[in-house]
């Protein structure tokens, strides 16, 4: 038996995905933000760090679409540039965590025995920590910066991928096409890469989609308490932190970054939901 081909399922998948209205909405949100982030340099009316003291705390207007902050910086421009940071944080953490996690999980599932036991106990240990506390401790130890916050969140995110991958591999390992490949003398690595990995992508994709949102929230949470991006970076968590003293008097300082974050994270969650509904046939009626 050969590996299931990719062309037809992809088309099938696309057709199904289009039927999930909410997932499509989510995808549209994400695409819009990606476009805004890419074009941030072109479409922002002001440089994100440009200060204009006379415009301090100006409410939303034509000149300042989302208002201006204490230092007279344009919040709209800062949000556009912040989108870059947030999408980048989500993507880089998910890439780091999923690649390490799947590799480790595949090893555990495929080799089994002692390897499996050791790796799974290791994930147990990581799961024991409340993620934000561990991430904070790591970020604190490495020193507060955006980059270190990313590493910290990745360190706490990989075990879920390891478990997912292991579960998938355990199921696939004994299936005929894998055994056939083994019978014809394929190396373990090749079997993993060629036959097992492609078949485990869908649950990983669902997880990654949810994780994008979760990571964006976690990193901005770390930034909010001072362990992530540092001011004056236009990171959304930093912007909320900087505007926290004005939350009731100058609401626009915090509302717009929070709303942007809500939108993006919702987008990823909707896509994740949609993917899961499609890929989990039990709920798909």
């Amino acid at each position: 038996m050969a590996t299931p081909q990719t062309a037809t399922p992809l088309r099938l998948f696309t057709r199904r995905f289009r039927k999930e209205t909410t997932a499509v909405i989510g995808l549209v949100i994400i695409v819009v933000f990606v476009i805004l982030a890419v074009l941030a340099g072109l479409i922002s009316p002001y440089p994100p760090l440009e200060q204009n003291i006379p415009a301090s705390l100006q409410p939303p207007s034509v000149a300042y679409l989302f208002g201006a902050d204490k230092l007279g910086r344009d919040i709209f421009s800062r949000i556009l540039h912040g989108a870059r940071i947030s999408l980048f944080t989500g993507l880089s953490v998910v890439v780091m965590a999923s690649s390490v996690g799947t590799l480790v999980g595949a090893i555990a599932g495929y080799l089994g025995g002692w390897w499996d036991e050791a790796i799974m106990r290791l994930t147990d240990i990581f799961f024991a920590f409340p993620s934000l506390i561990l991430a904070m401790a790591i970020a604190g130890a490495l020193g507060p910066s955006l980059q270190n916050a990313l590493i910290a969140v990745a360190v706490v995110s990989w075990p879920i991928y390891a478990r997912l991958m292991r579960g998938q591999v355990l199921v696939l390992r004994d299936q005929e096409f894998v055994q056939a490949a083994r019978a014809i003398g394929m190396s373990n690595l090749r079997i993993l890469l060629r036959h097992i990995l492609p078949n485990t992508l869908s649950p990983l994709l669902v997880q990654a989609s949810f994780d994008m949102g979760g990571t964006i929230l976690a990193v901005s949470g770390l930034s909010f308490i001072g362990f992530g991006a540092q001011p004056p970076t236009p990171e959304w968590g930093v912007m909320i932190s900087e505007g926290r003293n004005y939350i009731t008097t100058q609401w626009w300082l915090t509302f717009f970054p929070a709303f942007a974050m809500l939108l993006v994270v919702t987008g990823f969650n909707l896509v994740g939901d949609g993917l899961r509904d499609i890929l989990d046939p039990r709920l798909n009626k």
Partner: peptide
């Protein structure tokens, strides 16, 4: 905030 102003 003051630091951001000075940095600027």
């Amino acid at each position: 905030t003051l630091a951001a102003k000075l940095k600027n």
